[in-house]
Design a protein around this nucleic acid. Structure first.
Lengths: 220, 220, 220, 220
DNA sequence: GCCTAACCGAGACGGTACGTCCGGTCTTTTT
DNA sequence: AAAAAGACCGGACGTACCGTCTCGGTTAGGC
């Protein structure tokens, strides 16, 4: 989804890569301001101080532009290492979602409305956003298994979708992403209980003799 | 999202409610035929044998019209009674979501994109769609508790959101609702395990005595 | 062009003639304010505090309404009697046209734009406006002939159109009717010279014993 | 009323002047076919194979478009040279107005209605239509003076307005321009008599010893 | 003193045209 | 050859009027 590579030896003027950045930046801003539907190529080009043709030379249309722009925003997740599964998960998921970052929130809301209707947008979003986060998620679990903290999860695919699913659901129903407290509750009430009983030999952070459910007070 | 109610006794000609129906029906048909993006107000009005103004008198735009049209499609959920919690849940959730039905799919996809941006739409959607289904969901669980099949669920609110969340997530990532198999898997791997220990009637893939959860002491 | 007479014995409620007047008055005001094209039946009815149906019950459309409204404004011209042809003409024409009457001016301008395109409007305008004025015009000339002031005019029809023609022309080119000075010049330089040789009672600027035009020193 | 001139050297694509022509041609055709009222911008653009925006980029609305279209139809007047004043005038005025030409009629009628309300239209019309014709008119008279056929006309401005005034008047009252016979009558009964008595030394075409008015038989 | 038909204000109805905006392409000039 | 600028075609948008129709309510005769 990167701008079309100019093949091999190029006669004539080189692409000005600064235009890519300027256009993506403008696209993100507008995505946050007006949402995907009301974002227009004209507006993106104008805000970037570029011509429309410069846009269409790089991307096939609005979806591709937005996809690429969001893809550049990715801020790849970092594998946390707190020593416990729960600590890692909190670190990981709250780091993604609980930011008082209006910009990112707006971008996501704007993007979401486009995701539903645009297959290309969906695909790239899955590749660029979901996949990396899922990989880190899996790494966290694998490490917990290695530590003997939990047993291997038979339906990991399903389990790894629970948090993003609940987050999206909240976004759809509330218009904005949920806060960290909500995510922690999901972890404690849904995800962690499904990882199996606290394996007594391992979990230093878990209080093994208390039910994971009712002993936790939601952090709010 | 119902057409603006004329307060008290209004002078002048009454709204012809048959136009509401005709327009919504036309909108739903076109939504299924050409999708949300290619649906135009003109086409809806023409197919309904109505004028565009009659449309705009009722709804502010395409999104509102479609949302309302979908809202009328509701087909209120019926409380199932299969004798077991799992049977009821399968009956309930698959009845809602497992239809190889382009019509309903398009309609929902069209709806979803409007939900994110419009608070009012969200509210009405929550009231008209989510609330009734949640009520039935709760009734199914309550009955299971009465039967002694499960213990009361402490975080029922969270648990009752799992299925719709996963469904929405699939819709967003795939552009269409998931099939019944997916939903059954969610029930068997996520929801039912969280309802407490040894549900003897549990799903086919479950090893009953190694369920990740059933070793937990009931919360009360 | 009067509202359709209800035939013979009418059962049911009588037409409220006050509505005719209110509607016509509103029509004239709007004609003056926005012109014929931008005048809408809705606006007329609203300003008159009437319903649109009350309008269409009386007139077939905008043209008929305006025609009737203007027809009621007629203010029939009065036959002047100053003793001389020129005095009568000045009295007559300036009385018609040189009024600091913004309303009448605007009405005429608004009307004019409709006249060109609407045959019915033209016909009624000719009958209600032009004809009476032409009759008075003719009477003035006839009396001058009787007095022996001038000889009978062979192409009176043509001559009687000169003043209104020039007035309309000025309206079209300037957007408003000319002032009295212009009309007096038309009378003195065009109309009166054509009434025959040496009109002894001619205007103040005229050299009585010479042909009206060629005696003038060239303006260069 | 020509399309807005792009000042100096403008960046970006040039206006395609062929679109101006195509649009004006389409406008004239439709004007003749369906009249001003039923002419729509959509139809004009479609017939010209253009987009509506291309229309609105050039003209503010229907009136402006039509005025400009008519302006291009101008067929600049040619200075006639028949040897006599009357011959020249007949040649000149009848050449303009005496066409049994629905096309031109509709066009003029459409134009006229716009003239009254729009000061800019008036100005352009005066410059593009009236001025050139007036110039030729003056040239014809000047030559007659040089020939000694007539004396200089002191109120030439007024006299030169007589013919167009009478023509407009007829258009307003009849909805279409008068025929050549009418114009010849105006020339013979109004304009020529006011040029003064046939100066005996020169005029070969004028009968000097008869009153200018009643000796002429209307040419019809 | 009702009955009934036509009236009234208000405003919804099916249409039609409007003028604006945007998507995606093409053209001109400059770099 | 790529850039900025912007004109081009096509088409949907939401608004405004048209002339008709439908409300609930008001006047009048005719019985």
């Amino acid at each position: 989804m990167t701008p079309t590579a100019t093949a091999g030896h190029a006669p004539g003027r080189k692409r000005d890569t600064s235009r890519d950045d300027a256009l993506c930046q403008a696209a993100l801003e507008l995505l946050a301001e007006v949402g995907y539907d009301r974002l227009t190529i004209d507006a993106v080009a104008t805000r970037a101080g570029a011509g429309k043709a410069t846009c269409y030379r790089r991307w096939a249309g609005k979806a591709e532009l937005v996809v690429d722009a969001v893809g550049r925003m990715k801020a790849q997740p970092v594998l946390p290492d707190t020593g416990s599964l729960r600590g890692d998960l909190v670190e990981l998921t709250c780091h993604f979602h609980d930011q008082d970052d209006t910009f990112r929130t707006e971008v996501q809301a704007g993007l979401l409305s486009g995701l539903i209707r645009d297959a290309k947008l969906r695909q790239v979003f899955a590749e660029q956003f979901i996949a990396p986060r899922k990989a880190v998620f899996r790494a966290v679990f694998d490490r917990a298994v290695e530590r003997g903290e939990i047993a291997p999860i038979p339906h990991f695919e399903l389990l790894s979708d629970v948090v993003p699913s609940m987050v999206f659901h909240q976004m759809i129903l509330n218009g904005r992403p949920p806060d960290a407290a909500f995510i922690r509750t999901v972890l404690d009430q849904i995800v962690l209980p499904l990882t199996g009983p606290g394996t007594p030999s391992a979990g230093p952070a878990q209080n093994p003799n208390q039910s994971p459910i009712q002993n936790r007070t939601p952090s709010s």
